[in-house]
Structure formats: structure tokens, C-alpha cells
Design a protein around this nucleic acid. Sequence first.
RNA 1: GCGAUCGUAGCUCAGUUGGUUAGAGCGCCGGUUUGUGGUACCGGAGGUCGGGGGUUCGAGACCCCUCGAUCGCCCCA
Length: 411
Amino acid sequence: MSKTPQAIRGTQDIFGPDAEAFAFVVETFERVRKLYRFRRVEMPVFEKTEVFSRAIGETTDVVSKEMYSFEDRGGDSLTLRPEFTAGIARAYLSNGWQQHAPLKVATHGPLFRYERPQKGRYRQFHQIDAEIIGAAEPQADVELLAMADQLLKELGIDGVTLYLNTLGDGDSREAWRAALVEHFRAVKDELSEDSQERLEKNPLRILDSKDRRDQRFVADAPKIDQFLSGDARAFFDAVTSGLDAAGVKWTRAESLVRGLDYYRHTAFEFIPDEGSEAASKLGSQSTILGGGRYDGLMESLGGAPTPAVGWAAGIERLAMLVGDRVEPKADVIVVVENDDLIDSAIAAIARIRAGGHPAELMATGSPRKRFDKAVKAGANKIVAFDMRDGAEHVRIKADDEETASLVKLLG
RNA sequence: GCGAUCGUAGCUCAGUUGGUUAGAGCGCCGGUUUGUGGUACCGGAGGUCGGGGGUUCGAGACCCCUCGAUCGCCCCA
């Protein structure tokens, strides 16, 4: 038994270039979110278990086997949030945020899912999230997708395609689902074991099965388009024409479905193109940003029918795609080459930092090697304190203009 | 939850069919050298070989268990 405790499986200690990439994703999201006028919200990390079980659906994998649920000291069943949407919906209802509708909100933070860890999949992971609540218009879907598209562009991520589908309204979705069950039940024995199970729990999922045995029957499976009501079709057409107008490229994916029960109408995922650099960085975790419309969710939490759309993206997955970000170098390094001058150096670096320059003090280790360490650290401005002829001597290594401004700063 | 591969200094790795005191490079610390500079040389610290058990005269290596990482399935962001 080793004496130092190990980190919990599936958690990460993010440091160095990885932490810089993580911060870059969050900072870029914050900037883009303001561009689209989404308001910032902070949400609890845990909720009553029923918030998730009712909103997401009892039969989903997330609820039935991936939640971190526990009883608190008062005997209530609580759950560490496995996603943002259900908690935001609960907050919308319990705080009377209807008065702000249509409400555009954004947040980010940790989520928890008890899954087998893999590259790009963790038990504590982090998402950025954007929601528009109380907006029934297809323009809301368009705005949300335009924001996602711009975010990915500003992160410098390319080789990614937006796949778009509609699940229709509640009636369309149910009719389609029933037809799918009928279609696949006829050939049940020839389906993969996984899909035979999906037939009962989540028949839509059979459509994106990777198993060859299933794919034979997927090709001629009923299409959602056959079941779309006139309104549902008009809604989807409005979304796609809005995307075209916004300059957002998209691809129709008829078999794209979402795992959670609450989705209606628009469903979408941003997925790296096969064979692209992005795809190889992500391994088998292909979706980097996904979401859709969830008009039925509020009712499952006891609220009035409320239309809403949202998406979430995994920060770790995005960070893998933006690549290593170098930690910024110090603007100025103050080197103490003689320990008697430490106080002079402390006074100097205080002024430099007050002047707005990121600065580092180099005053440990062999005095003779400190200057070399400063040079090696890559600072372009170095202020060195040393004794020369029995008196304090300050040397500045920088170009002339910078030297002048440093001299002024140091008085 | 299922299947597979892998765990040796801080990092990247070597370590012969099982055989003395487990090594190298980089990094770190110290000394000398250089002295408007990222040099060179010398020295040092740092490993219960992921953890536990077993086989053996002897295990870093072989076997079992366990923990973790990675890859695929499932699921998802």
C-alpha cells in the first residue's frame, strides 16, 4: 500500500499546457457568449435525484447506471449533476425566470458520470453550455447554432461538420418511434444483442449502431420525414434556411438521434470529419458539441409547457483539439545575483508588477547561475541586482526603448 | 458493464532464455569555467521497478489478485 492517496479514477489534475488549453476554451466561450448576449448563470453541482431522473428519463443509461447518487445526512437522495440542462430547467421553474423569457443563459463547470474512463471521457469532466428557454421560434435554434459554429471557429478548430436532424414534434416522434419498433421487431433475431435490447429501451439508437448486422436493416428503416407534421416540417425548413443565411454549414443526418428522452425537433452534433487530424486526436469520442430542442422537458418537472433549445460541449475534448497552449513567459525577470540586495530586488519587482508587467523573482539556487536561468526562461527583459566596486549595481538587459521604460518604472 | 494492451527516476526510455549493488539521456540541485550571458566540465539527489500475494536457491522479468492508464464495444460532451 502506497502512503499517498491516489486520485479518484476518471478524475484529472490538469496542469501546464493542458491547463492553458482548458482556460483558452473557457475564455473563448465567455467572449463568444457575450457576443450573442447570453447571460451568465452559476448552478449547484448537485440536485435532488428526481431532477435528473424525471427530466432525463429513467430508462436512459445516464440515469439508470451512470449517476453519482447518495443519501445526505437528512435522508434526501441527491445526485452530482450529470448534465446542465435539467438543473437549469429546475432553476427556471423554481425561480420564476419565466419573467425573463425568452431567456438566454450560459454556464460552464464540472459534471459527473460513472463511466469507464477513456481518452476524452472522464468521470469528472467539464462542459460549456448554452440554453435558450421560452423561445418557440426556429430562430432560437439558428442563433444557438451560429454561436456554436463561431465558437469552434474562434477556437481554431476545423475539420468538423455540423450534423443536423429533426425528431419532429411529440406526435411525429412517437409515430416514428412506433414504426421503427415495428420495423426492427420483424427482424429482431437477426439484430445484434445490443440492438435487441435497444428495441425495448431506446429504438432510435439502433439507427446509429456500428454493428454490421444492424446496418443492413437500418438502410430501409422508416424515415422521420414520413412522419413529420406540416408544422414540424416547416419548423425544420426555417432552421435550415436560417443557418444558410447565417453562413453556417450543415449536413443532414437522418439517423442522428439524441440519447436523452427530452429532445424534440432539432437535434445536432458537431463531429470531426473522418480521417481528419481532429478525429485522430479524439479517439472514439467523436461528438465535441451536441444538443437540440427540448420542448417537453419543463412539463416533466411539473412546469408549464415551455419551448427551449440548448447545447453543451466537452471542454476537455475541445482542449484536445486546440492543442498545447504554451504558458506565457514572464515579461520581466528580476535576478538577485547577490543575496544582500534581496530587499532592493523585492522593492523593484513590486513596482514592476504594480506597473502591470507579469514579473518573476529569481533569487534561489546558486547566485552565479541565476542570470543564466533567467535567460533560459525566455524573458526578454531582465533586471539584475549585483554588487560592483562595493556598491549596488543594476543591470538591465532589454532593448533601448524597454530599458528606458523600465528605468522610469524603477525610479 | 464487456473485451484487449500496458504500468521501471520528475519526463522519454533501456534492462539478454529469471542471476551481483536496477541504468542512460533530458530535467533538477551543487561546484568550477565563462562574464552583457541560453557555454563546457565535474559531482550530487531522486526508484520499496503501480500495490499485494505466489512460484523459485534467486523475480523488474513468470503466475494470480488488485489499482490505474490506453484502445475497442456500450454510452455520451
